[in-house]
Nucleic acid binder design. Structure first.
Lengths: 153, 153
DNA sequence: TTTATTGTCTATATAATTAGTAGATAATTA
DNA sequence: TAATTATCTACTAATTATATAGACAATAAA
Protein backbone atom coordinates (compact mmCIF):
# COMPACT_ATOMS: atom_id res chain seq x y z
CA UNK A 1 0.00 0.00 0.00
CA UNK A 2 2.09 2.81 -1.38
CA UNK A 3 2.27 6.41 -0.30
CA UNK A 4 -1.09 7.56 -1.40
CA UNK A 5 -1.77 10.80 0.03
CA UNK A 6 -0.20 12.34 -3.04
CA UNK A 7 1.41 15.76 -3.09
CA UNK A 8 -1.87 17.12 -4.33
CA UNK A 9 -3.73 16.05 -1.21
CA UNK A 10 -0.90 17.03 1.06
CA UNK A 11 -0.61 20.50 -0.46
CA UNK A 12 -4.36 20.94 -0.27
CA UNK A 13 -4.45 20.09 3.41
CA UNK A 14 -1.54 22.37 4.20
CA UNK A 15 -3.17 25.20 2.28
CA UNK A 16 -6.56 24.84 3.90
CA UNK A 17 -4.96 24.80 7.33
CA UNK A 18 -3.11 27.97 6.37
CA UNK A 19 -6.41 29.60 5.41
CA UNK A 20 -8.06 28.36 8.60
CA UNK A 21 -5.49 30.30 10.60
CA UNK A 22 -6.41 33.63 9.06
CA UNK A 23 -8.38 36.19 11.03
CA UNK A 24 -12.11 36.24 10.26
CA UNK A 25 -12.71 38.16 7.02
CA UNK A 26 -9.08 38.03 5.99
CA UNK A 27 -7.97 36.45 2.72
CA UNK A 28 -4.66 35.06 1.53
CA UNK A 29 -3.28 35.11 -1.97
CA UNK A 30 -2.22 31.92 -3.72
CA UNK A 31 1.31 33.22 -4.15
CA UNK A 32 1.61 33.79 -0.42
CA UNK A 33 0.15 30.43 0.57
CA UNK A 34 2.44 28.76 -1.94
CA UNK A 35 5.57 30.49 -0.72
CA UNK A 36 4.90 30.02 2.96
CA UNK A 37 4.24 26.32 2.53
CA UNK A 38 6.80 25.45 -0.14
CA UNK A 39 4.17 24.55 -2.69
CA UNK A 40 4.61 25.18 -6.45
CA UNK A 41 2.35 28.13 -7.17
CA UNK A 42 0.79 26.86 -10.39
CA UNK A 43 0.08 23.50 -8.84
CA UNK A 44 -1.58 25.17 -5.89
CA UNK A 45 -3.72 27.22 -8.29
CA UNK A 46 -5.38 24.05 -9.53
CA UNK A 47 -5.71 22.58 -6.06
CA UNK A 48 -7.41 25.59 -4.55
CA UNK A 49 -9.74 25.70 -7.51
CA UNK A 50 -10.81 22.14 -6.79
CA UNK A 51 -11.46 22.97 -3.16
CA UNK A 52 -13.37 26.08 -4.19
CA UNK A 53 -15.51 24.07 -6.60
CA UNK A 54 -16.14 21.59 -3.81
CA UNK A 55 -17.58 24.46 -1.79
CA UNK A 56 -14.92 24.68 0.89
CA UNK A 57 -13.27 27.89 -0.21
CA UNK A 58 -14.39 31.21 -1.57
CA UNK A 59 -12.25 33.40 -3.78
CA UNK A 60 -12.06 36.94 -4.99
CA UNK A 61 -10.18 38.22 -8.00
CA UNK A 62 -8.23 41.40 -8.42
CA UNK A 63 -6.04 43.47 -6.14
CA UNK A 64 -6.62 42.61 -2.51
CA UNK A 65 -8.31 39.41 -3.61
CA UNK A 66 -7.41 35.89 -2.60
CA UNK A 67 -8.81 32.82 -0.95
CA UNK A 68 -10.59 32.18 2.33
CA UNK A 69 -12.60 29.38 3.89
CA UNK A 70 -16.22 29.32 2.73
CA UNK A 71 -17.40 27.94 6.07
CA UNK A 72 -16.14 27.35 9.60
CA UNK A 73 -13.03 25.19 9.89
CA UNK A 74 -14.82 22.91 12.35
CA UNK A 75 -17.37 22.04 9.67
CA UNK A 76 -14.76 20.99 7.09
CA UNK A 77 -13.74 17.38 7.49
CA UNK A 78 -10.31 16.17 6.48
CA UNK A 79 -12.08 13.39 4.59
CA UNK A 80 -13.91 15.93 2.46
CA UNK A 81 -10.66 17.64 1.50
CA UNK A 82 -9.02 14.33 0.62
CA UNK A 83 -11.99 13.11 -1.40
CA UNK A 84 -12.19 16.39 -3.31
CA UNK A 85 -8.52 16.17 -4.30
CA UNK A 86 -7.77 12.46 -4.45
CA UNK A 87 -11.06 10.70 -4.97
CA UNK A 88 -12.54 7.89 -2.89
CA UNK A 89 -10.65 6.80 0.20
CA UNK A 90 -11.16 3.06 -0.21
CA UNK A 91 -7.93 1.17 -0.93
CA UNK A 92 -9.70 -0.71 -3.71
CA UNK A 93 -12.73 0.22 -5.78
CA UNK A 94 -14.80 -2.79 -4.73
CA UNK A 95 -14.57 -1.62 -1.12
CA UNK A 96 -15.70 1.92 -1.87
CA UNK A 97 -19.09 3.21 -0.79
CA UNK A 98 -19.15 6.28 -2.98
CA UNK A 99 -17.48 4.77 -6.06
CA UNK A 100 -18.04 1.05 -5.94
CA UNK A 101 -16.75 -0.93 -8.89
CA UNK A 102 -16.27 -4.66 -9.06
CA UNK A 103 -12.89 -6.02 -10.10
CA UNK A 104 -12.81 -7.65 -13.51
CA UNK A 105 -11.10 -10.67 -12.07
CA UNK A 106 -13.63 -11.08 -9.28
CA UNK A 107 -15.48 -14.36 -9.14
CA UNK A 108 -18.00 -13.53 -6.44
CA UNK A 109 -18.02 -10.21 -4.70
CA UNK A 110 -19.88 -11.54 -1.68
CA UNK A 111 -17.26 -14.11 -0.83
CA UNK A 112 -14.12 -12.18 -1.76
CA UNK A 113 -11.86 -12.07 1.30
CA UNK A 114 -9.78 -9.25 -0.15
CA UNK A 115 -12.84 -7.09 -0.44
CA UNK A 116 -13.83 -8.04 3.09
CA UNK A 117 -10.61 -6.95 4.76
CA UNK A 118 -10.26 -3.89 2.53
CA UNK A 119 -13.74 -2.82 3.54
CA UNK A 120 -12.56 -2.94 7.13
CA UNK A 121 -9.57 -0.83 6.15
CA UNK A 122 -11.79 1.65 4.39
CA UNK A 123 -13.97 1.95 7.48
CA UNK A 124 -10.92 2.44 9.66
CA UNK A 125 -9.60 5.21 7.44
CA UNK A 126 -13.00 6.87 7.25
CA UNK A 127 -13.21 6.62 11.02
CA UNK A 128 -10.25 8.95 11.24
CA UNK A 129 -10.64 11.33 8.33
CA UNK A 130 -14.39 11.80 8.77
CA UNK A 131 -14.12 12.66 12.44
CA UNK A 132 -11.15 15.00 12.15
CA UNK A 133 -11.82 18.55 11.01
CA UNK A 134 -9.63 21.30 9.68
CA UNK A 135 -10.16 23.06 13.00
CA UNK A 136 -8.68 20.01 14.73
CA UNK A 137 -5.62 20.25 12.53
CA UNK A 138 -5.14 23.91 13.41
CA UNK A 139 -5.52 23.08 17.07
CA UNK A 140 -3.01 20.28 16.90
CA UNK A 141 -0.34 22.27 15.17
CA UNK A 142 -0.69 24.99 17.77
CA UNK A 143 -0.66 22.50 20.64
CA UNK A 144 2.43 20.81 19.23
CA UNK A 145 4.14 24.12 18.62
CA UNK A 146 3.73 25.15 22.24
CA UNK A 147 5.01 21.78 23.38
CA UNK A 148 8.16 22.40 21.41
CA UNK A 149 8.50 26.08 22.16
CA UNK A 150 11.68 27.17 23.81
CA UNK A 151 10.68 29.23 26.81
CA UNK A 152 14.20 29.84 27.99
CA UNK A 153 15.29 33.45 27.66
CA UNK B 1 -6.40 8.77 -1.61
CA UNK B 2 -6.50 6.65 -4.72
CA UNK B 3 -7.07 2.97 -4.99
CA UNK B 4 -3.88 1.76 -3.53
CA UNK B 5 -4.08 -1.79 -2.97
CA UNK B 6 -2.71 -2.32 -6.46
CA UNK B 7 -3.39 -5.38 -8.55
CA UNK B 8 -0.13 -6.77 -7.30
CA UNK B 9 -1.28 -6.76 -3.70
CA UNK B 10 -4.74 -7.94 -4.58
CA UNK B 11 -3.43 -10.85 -6.64
CA UNK B 12 -1.00 -11.78 -3.90
CA UNK B 13 -3.73 -11.90 -1.27
CA UNK B 14 -6.00 -13.94 -3.49
CA UNK B 15 -3.19 -16.36 -4.24
CA UNK B 16 -2.14 -16.83 -0.65
CA UNK B 17 -5.74 -17.48 0.37
CA UNK B 18 -5.91 -20.04 -2.41
CA UNK B 19 -2.82 -21.75 -1.02
CA UNK B 20 -4.18 -21.58 2.51
CA UNK B 21 -7.15 -23.64 1.43
CA UNK B 22 -5.04 -26.56 0.25
CA UNK B 23 -4.84 -29.75 2.27
CA UNK B 24 -1.77 -30.04 4.49
CA UNK B 25 1.22 -31.10 2.39
CA UNK B 26 -0.50 -30.31 -0.87
CA UNK B 27 0.97 -27.82 -3.36
CA UNK B 28 -0.55 -25.82 -6.19
CA UNK B 29 1.08 -24.79 -9.43
CA UNK B 30 1.29 -21.17 -10.48
CA UNK B 31 -0.64 -21.89 -13.66
CA UNK B 32 -3.49 -23.34 -11.66
CA UNK B 33 -3.61 -20.55 -9.10
CA UNK B 34 -3.51 -18.02 -11.93
CA UNK B 35 -6.31 -19.63 -13.88
CA UNK B 36 -8.61 -20.20 -10.94
CA UNK B 37 -8.25 -16.61 -9.77
CA UNK B 38 -8.13 -14.81 -13.11
CA UNK B 39 -4.60 -13.59 -12.57
CA UNK B 40 -2.09 -13.19 -15.45
CA UNK B 41 0.29 -16.11 -15.01
CA UNK B 42 3.54 -14.23 -15.62
CA UNK B 43 2.53 -11.50 -13.23
CA UNK B 44 1.69 -14.06 -10.58
CA UNK B 45 5.10 -15.66 -11.08
CA UNK B 46 6.78 -12.51 -9.83
CA UNK B 47 4.31 -12.03 -7.00
CA UNK B 48 4.68 -15.51 -5.59
CA UNK B 49 8.42 -15.14 -5.79
CA UNK B 50 8.22 -12.04 -3.62
CA UNK B 51 6.10 -13.84 -1.06
CA UNK B 52 8.48 -16.77 -1.13
CA UNK B 53 11.47 -14.50 -0.58
CA UNK B 54 9.59 -12.90 2.30
CA UNK B 55 9.40 -16.34 3.90
CA UNK B 56 5.67 -16.92 3.60
CA UNK B 57 5.72 -19.52 0.85
CA UNK B 58 7.85 -22.49 -0.04
CA UNK B 59 8.26 -23.80 -3.56
CA UNK B 60 9.39 -26.86 -5.41
CA UNK B 61 10.45 -27.06 -9.03
CA UNK B 62 9.80 -29.77 -11.56
CA UNK B 63 6.88 -32.07 -12.23
CA UNK B 64 4.55 -32.25 -9.28
CA UNK B 65 6.14 -29.11 -7.91
CA UNK B 66 4.43 -25.88 -7.02
CA UNK B 67 3.82 -23.51 -4.13
CA UNK B 68 2.54 -23.96 -0.60
CA UNK B 69 2.45 -21.91 2.59
CA UNK B 70 5.70 -21.98 4.50
CA UNK B 71 3.92 -21.64 7.84
CA UNK B 72 0.41 -21.81 9.31
CA UNK B 73 -2.12 -19.44 7.79
CA UNK B 74 -2.97 -18.10 11.24
CA UNK B 75 0.60 -16.88 11.61
CA UNK B 76 0.62 -14.91 8.35
CA UNK B 77 -0.77 -11.43 8.79
CA UNK B 78 -2.46 -9.59 5.96
CA UNK B 79 -0.20 -6.66 6.75
CA UNK B 80 2.87 -8.77 6.10
CA UNK B 81 1.59 -9.78 2.68
CA UNK B 82 0.76 -6.20 1.78
CA UNK B 83 4.10 -4.86 2.99
CA UNK B 84 5.98 -7.56 1.07
CA UNK B 85 4.23 -6.66 -2.16
CA UNK B 86 3.43 -2.97 -1.85
CA UNK B 87 5.82 -1.54 0.67
CA UNK B 88 4.97 0.48 3.78
CA UNK B 89 1.32 0.96 4.65
CA UNK B 90 1.53 4.60 5.73
CA UNK B 91 -0.34 6.99 3.41
CA UNK B 92 2.66 9.31 3.40
CA UNK B 93 6.33 8.60 4.08
CA UNK B 94 6.60 10.99 7.03
CA UNK B 95 3.94 8.96 8.84
CA UNK B 96 5.67 5.63 8.29
CA UNK B 97 7.29 3.72 11.13
CA UNK B 98 9.29 1.33 9.00
CA UNK B 99 10.25 3.75 6.23
CA UNK B 100 10.10 7.26 7.65
CA UNK B 101 11.17 10.05 5.35
CA UNK B 102 10.53 13.74 5.83
CA UNK B 103 8.86 15.71 3.05
CA UNK B 104 11.10 18.15 1.24
CA UNK B 105 8.54 20.88 1.67
CA UNK B 106 8.15 20.27 5.39
CA UNK B 107 8.93 23.18 7.67
CA UNK B 108 8.74 21.41 11.00
CA UNK B 109 7.88 17.77 11.29
CA UNK B 110 6.75 18.07 14.88
CA UNK B 111 4.07 20.63 14.15
CA UNK B 112 2.88 19.35 10.77
CA UNK B 113 -0.85 18.70 11.04
CA UNK B 114 -0.86 16.60 7.88
CA UNK B 115 1.64 14.25 9.39
CA UNK B 116 -0.38 14.15 12.59
CA UNK B 117 -3.64 13.03 11.01
CA UNK B 118 -1.89 10.71 8.58
CA UNK B 119 -0.15 9.02 11.49
CA UNK B 120 -3.58 8.35 12.93
CA UNK B 121 -4.64 6.92 9.58
CA UNK B 122 -1.56 4.74 9.47
CA UNK B 123 -2.34 3.39 12.94
CA UNK B 124 -5.93 2.72 11.95
CA UNK B 125 -4.87 0.79 8.87
CA UNK B 126 -2.25 -1.15 10.81
CA UNK B 127 -4.91 -1.91 13.42
CA UNK B 128 -6.80 -3.85 10.78
CA UNK B 129 -4.13 -5.45 8.62
CA UNK B 130 -1.87 -6.45 11.52
CA UNK B 131 -4.64 -8.17 13.42
CA UNK B 132 -6.17 -10.00 10.47
CA UNK B 133 -4.49 -13.20 9.32
CA UNK B 134 -4.68 -15.25 6.16
CA UNK B 135 -6.57 -17.84 8.21
CA UNK B 136 -9.16 -15.19 9.02
CA UNK B 137 -9.59 -14.50 5.32
CA UNK B 138 -10.14 -18.17 4.60
CA UNK B 139 -12.66 -18.35 7.42
CA UNK B 140 -14.54 -15.31 6.17
CA UNK B 141 -14.85 -16.48 2.61
CA UNK B 142 -16.22 -19.79 3.83
CA UNK B 143 -18.61 -18.13 6.26
CA UNK B 144 -19.82 -15.78 3.56
CA UNK B 145 -20.17 -18.60 1.07
CA UNK B 146 -22.41 -20.57 3.41
CA UNK B 147 -24.48 -17.47 4.07
CA UNK B 148 -25.13 -17.22 0.36
CA UNK B 149 -25.50 -20.92 -0.31
CA UNK B 150 -28.75 -22.07 -1.76
CA UNK B 151 -29.97 -24.87 0.43
CA UNK B 152 -33.18 -25.45 -1.47
CA UNK B 153 -33.24 -28.75 -3.30
C1' DT C 1 -10.56 54.45 -18.39
C1' DT C 2 -6.41 52.54 -17.97
C1' DT C 3 -3.22 49.65 -15.50
C1' DA C 4 -1.82 46.43 -12.24
C1' DT C 5 -3.27 42.63 -9.73
C1' DT C 6 -5.16 38.34 -8.81
C1' DG C 7 -7.91 34.25 -9.70
C1' DT C 8 -9.62 30.90 -13.72
C1' DC C 9 -9.10 27.89 -17.39
C1' DT C 10 -7.08 24.95 -21.14
C1' DA C 11 -3.45 22.65 -22.92
C1' DT C 12 0.88 20.46 -22.73
C1' DA C 13 5.25 18.14 -20.94
C1' DT C 14 7.99 15.18 -18.01
C1' DA C 15 8.72 11.69 -14.71
C1' DA C 16 7.37 7.92 -12.01
C1' DT C 17 4.75 3.94 -11.22
C1' DT C 18 1.91 0.10 -12.47
C1' DA C 19 0.91 -3.73 -15.10
C1' DG C 20 2.19 -6.76 -17.76
C1' DT C 21 5.14 -9.72 -21.55
C1' DA C 22 9.07 -12.31 -23.60
C1' DG C 23 12.32 -15.44 -23.32
C1' DA C 24 16.17 -17.75 -21.34
C1' DT C 25 17.74 -20.63 -17.26
C1' DA C 26 17.67 -23.98 -13.38
C1' DA C 27 15.90 -27.74 -10.86
C1' DT C 28 13.31 -31.86 -10.53
C1' DT C 29 10.83 -36.00 -11.85
C1' DA C 30 9.66 -39.83 -14.77
C1' DT D 1 16.84 -37.70 -21.85
C1' DA D 2 12.62 -35.28 -22.03
C1' DA D 3 8.98 -33.02 -19.93
C1' DT D 4 7.66 -30.06 -16.38
C1' DT D 5 7.71 -26.36 -13.29
C1' DA D 6 9.80 -22.56 -10.81
C1' DT D 7 13.33 -18.62 -11.28
C1' DC D 8 15.40 -14.74 -13.22
C1' DT D 9 16.48 -10.74 -16.36
C1' DA D 10 15.06 -7.55 -19.42
C1' DC D 11 11.82 -5.03 -21.75
C1' DT D 12 7.32 -2.54 -23.18
C1' DA D 13 2.91 -0.20 -22.69
C1' DA D 14 -0.38 2.24 -20.13
C1' DT D 15 -1.61 5.10 -16.54
C1' DT D 16 -1.04 8.49 -13.05
C1' DA D 17 1.40 12.16 -10.67
C1' DT D 18 3.56 16.42 -10.94
C1' DA D 19 3.91 19.93 -12.55
C1' DT D 20 4.46 24.31 -16.31
C1' DA D 21 2.96 27.76 -19.92
C1' DG D 22 0.16 30.98 -21.38
C1' DA D 23 -4.21 33.08 -22.40
C1' DC D 24 -8.36 34.95 -20.20
C1' DA D 25 -11.56 37.24 -16.73
C1' DA D 26 -12.64 40.00 -12.89
C1' DT D 27 -11.63 43.58 -9.74
C1' DA D 28 -9.55 47.63 -7.53
C1' DA D 29 -7.03 51.75 -7.55
C1' DA D 30 -4.97 55.59 -9.95
Amino acid sequence: MNPVLTNKGKYGLKAIVHLARLEAGETAQVADVAQRNNIPKKFLDAILLDLRNAGMLRSKKGPGGGYALAKPARSIKVGAVIRALEGPIAPIACASRSAFRACEDCGDIDTCPVRSVMSDVRDAIAGIVDTTTVADLVQRSIAQASLHADYAI
